[in-house]
Amino acid sequence: MNSSNTLPVRKRKRRLSLTTKKAISGWIFVLPFVLGIIMIYGPIVFKSIQISFVSLEGTASREVKEFIGFDNYKRIFEEGANFLEAIMNGIKSLVIQIPSIVIFSLFMAVILNQKMAGRTLFRAIFFLPVILSTGVIAATDASSNALANMESGQVDTNTGEAGFMSSMDLASMLGNIQMGSALVDIVVGLVNDIFDIISRSGVQMLIFLSGLQSISPSIYESCQMEGASAWETFWKITLPMISPMILVNAIYTVIDAFTAPDNNVMGYVQKLLRGGTSGTALGSPIEAVQVGHAMIWVYTALVLVVIVLVALIMKAFVFYQKRD
């Protein structure tokens, strides 16, 4: 490895201080990533914000734009009461989902981190929902799911990959044993919720697992020597050491929930961005695009508020291995 590549400053006569050298290498290291972000996201953000403030009406080429201030944002409140309600519902359900997903995945990770026969196999099994829920496989599942429901004469309202197991087998099974339909709905709903949480914990579990693996075994060994029980070791060692990953997972969960393609708000915004006006009071596809862009920014702002809140709450508990 050629060190002169990274520190060209060395060749100069005037010697730079250590802090300056560090600063320069720091900048060089982040530069590719920052440039990438600016190049890829910069124009997108600019364009989208621009559209949200202008009227595209009567401009076929979308070149000539008329600045109309916050009108597009005002229209959200006029047309899209459902939109705001959907966001609020999303945030409400997150209040329950974040803790349950984080706790469940941490629990699984701690269990799967122990030495035991076939642990890689078990890990793979618990990561399966992540693999199963992407791409072709999800599509296949959904179609077989719909078909099964069609044949059993039941209309499944909880579509999506999470409903695969429960709605397909459980609902028809319960239907067969003549349970009341209200009761079936409750049971299926509950199982779907649990299954939803489990199937959305795959990545979080994996992150926790790697977090656990970077805790030094010698710390555990010394705990053994002092006679700490597994329970005490968990609360006194594992939890503080894993706390940075709890923050990552909480934020990942928020992002995952808000940006999933099957998210209601996402679907609605996407429809508007493609110029779809059905189900809205918007006059033309062009208006839909404008309001859609305004909605993206309202949505992004709200989600960022949630992320900052989560980060602030978690920060209080995070322990970093740092001493300066």
Binding site: A23, W27, V30, F33, V45, I255, T259, M266, I296, L304
Partner: peptide, 30 residues
């Protein structure tokens, strides 16, 4: 980039990180 942001103290790393953190929201759908 993560190494630099986490372990090299250089001026401007906080705003860079905040920007990157906000860009977590920009998924392909949007």
């Amino acid at each position: 980039a993560a190494y630099a942001l986490a372990k090299i103290p250089f001026p401007g790393r906080r705003p860079i990180f905040t920007t990157i953190q906000s860009s977590l929201m920009f998924t392909s759908t949007v």
